[in-house]
């Protein structure tokens, strides 16, 4: 169980502080896949960095399985958007995946074996001896995912993981994440600016307002599993939900048929769509 309570994060000094996140509270159950969507600059990445323990919150707290997160928690996996920046060009693909295991696993052969298994799990059995810069973007992001999975994480944080790959590859990677979640029951927090993606992969979709980021809405996405890129996206529920998320992201009033009160531009969004912790 991941609990975020009244998380606020400001950048800069007190005088000229820029508020990136304001009073964000959310609760994620074990094994849940929660999408966080919002316009750029809404503090999505800041939220993820606070949850990862990379960035101390200005106020509020993050609690993972009963332990407050003050530093990077154990069994955490992180995948950043820029695979080209987070993979190390001086290491082969296999050694990139094996590197984080140095902290927990003794012996290079054991680590390499674990890395090979993790690469196989993402469909990269034969790429271990290559270097990241010899691979396509989609394959590089697979390597980054394999590296995060090699540590056997209980919580996987993904910061716009598929933002830098083409549409076809993106769909394949979304399905890869859904498959991994189904197989291992990992809790996943996935930040994206892609509305279709947020609805397609998420059990829940959390919409943030533009800066300072606050929770505008916390919607369940009760679409049948396993999801399919074609049939799931044809479902009326999918179409409805994506429209709703789209309106929320753009800050427009919800469709009249919807039973939640419509947020208007002059009222604080949080009042319009209160996100009670554990509302799902």
């Amino acid at each position: 169980m991941l609990e975020v309570t009244d998380l606020t994060r400001a950048y800069g000094t007190a005088g000229s502080a820029h508020l990136a996140l304001k009073d964000v509270s959310l609760r994620v159950a074990d094994g849940e896949l929660v999408s966080i969507v919002g316009p750029s600059g809404c503090g999505k990445s800041t939220l993820l960095r606070c949850v990862a323990g990379l960035l101390p919150p200005t106020s509020g707290q993050v609690v993972l399985n009963g332990t407050p997160v003050t530093r990077v928690p154990g069994r955490l996996g992180v995948v950043f958007q820029d695979y080209s920046r987070s993979l190390y060009p001086w290491l082969s693909v296999r050694d990139n995946v094996a590197l984080p295991l140095r902290r927990t696993m003794r012996g290079r052969p054991a680590r390499r074996q674990a890395a090979a298994a993790s690469l196989a799990a993402v469909g990269l059995t034969d790429a271990g001896h290559r270097y990241p810069w010899q691979l396509s973007g989609g394959m590089q992001q697979r390597v980054a995912i394999a590296r995060a999975l090699a540590c056997d994480p209980v919580l996987l944080l993904m910061d716009e993981p598929f933002g830098s790959v083409d549409a076809q590859t993106r769909e394949d990677l979304e399905d890869l994440i859904l498959r991994v979640r189904a197989e291992r029951g990992i809790t996943i927090l996935l930040v994206t600016h892609d509305i279709d993606e947020s609805v397609y992969v998420g059990d829940r979709v959390i919409v943030l307002t533009p800066g300072p980021g606050q929770i505008r809405a916390d919607l369940a996405a009760p679409l049948p599993q396993p999801r399919d890129q074609i049939t799931t996206k044809e479902l009326p529920e999918f179409v409805h939900l994506r429209s709703e998320v789209s309106r929320l992201v753009r800050g427009k009033p919800l469709a009249p048929s919807d039973d939640t009160p419509a947020p208007s531009d002059d009222t604080p969004a949080r009042a319009a769509a209160p996100a009670k912790p554990g509302a799902s």
């Binding site: 990379l54 990077v72 928690p73 920046r85 902290r103």
Partner: peptide, 20 residues
């Protein structure tokens, strides 16, 4: 991002300097 990646895997400052 390269440094944060290793930090996110729980490595400390010295390890980040040495490995990244």
């Amino acid at each position: 991002v390269a440094k944060d990646t290793l930090r996110a895997f729980g490595f400390g400052r010295l390890a980040v300097i040495r490995l990244v």
